[in-house]
């Protein structure tokens, strides 16, 4: 019995310590952004690695999620003769939930893993210490450019993913499912408004911080050679994905108070 409480206590303590470490890293990063110069060259390289290189995978997932969601929505709505409501149902769901979540999870998997692996490798091969010995703060050089690049890239990627999803779902609805195009578009415009898109973009803005801080923290804390790097990489993806899903729920509830759906 005491063993159980001891284990539970250690778990809770470990979790609190983990949160504290990530919070410290975020504090250092904001301080760095406010007081140190931004390394433009690094930032542009990261914009390419995060933004440009994620585009194909993000567009592909957006397209297929949009199409399958249109099909499923149509199957149900058709039973109650509401075929043309498929348009707004798909566009609102994509803009508010599916687009932001799927894009963030894809980017967490692709980019979060790369961040943890790169920084983790630098850590175990003493490159981070080399950086420090050359009088450069690792947060200035490694975290700040990644943060800026992610905060710019993720909302843009999400917007593109949502747009692709809506276009592809329209094509499927008209060409495959045989819904009337004019009514489909009319209903979609009528029921979708800017706030649906804004809500989604505000949320991914938040998720971009989660991905960068969780992944960079895992990389910086990495220990124990190649095995440690592998472990850090997996944990970075798992932790940022879970954090995104949890944060998404609370952000949705909170935003519904501020911007009524």
């Amino acid at each position: 019995m005491t063993a159980f409480f001891e284990m539970a206590g250690r778990g809770v303590l470990g979790f609190v310590q983990y949160l504290g470490e990530v919070a410290l890293l975020s504090g250092d990063s904001f301080k760095s952004l406010a007081t140190q110069r931004l390394r433009w060259k690094e930032t542009v390289l990261q914009l390419h690695a995060i933004g440009v290189k994620s585009l194909p995978v993000v567009l592909l997932t957006g397209a297929f999620i949009g199409m399958v969601f249109a099909a499923q929505t149509y199957f149900q709505f058709h039973k109650v003769r509401m075929d043309t409501s498929t348009g707004p149902a798909v566009s609102i769901a994509l803009a508010r939930e599916l687009g932001p979540i799927i894009t963030s999870l894809m980017v967490a998997g692709r980019v979060g893993a790369a961040m943890a692996a790169e920084i983790g490798t630098m850590r175990v091969t003493e490159q981070i210490d080399a950086l420090r010995s050359l009088a450069v703060h690792p947060v200035d050089y490694l975290v700040a450019p990644r943060l800026i690049a992610m905060v710019i890239s993720l909302p843009l990627l999400t917007a593109m993913s949502v747009l692709t999803g809506i276009c592809c779902s329209w094509v499927v609805s008209i060409e495959v499912l045989g819904i009337d195009s004019a009514y489909y578009l009319h209903n979609m415009y009528k029921y979708t408004d800017a706030n649906d898109i804004n809500t989604g973009l505000i949320k991914v803005f938040l998720f971009s911080f989660i991905i960068v801080f969780v992944s960079c923290h895992k990389g910086m804390q990495c220990e124990g050679g190649a095995e440690g790097v592998g472990k850090a990489t997996t944990e970075a993806v798992v932790n940022s994905s879970i954090s995104i899903l949890i944060a998404n729920f609370f952000a949705t509830m909170l935003l519904s108070k501020i911007i009524p759906p």
């Binding site: 630098m122 091969t125 003493e126 490159q127 210490d129 080399a130 420090r132 050359l134 009088a135």
Partner: peptide, 24 residues
């Protein structure tokens, strides 16, 4: 602290065991 150490670190050069070159 970390930033206050930088002026001292500029007086010091370190050759690490594995050279620790930046691979990128």
């Amino acid at each position: 602290n970390e930033r206050a150490l930088n002026p001292i670190r500029r007086k010091i050069g370190v050759l690490f065991q594995g050279a620790a070159l930046f691979d990128s």
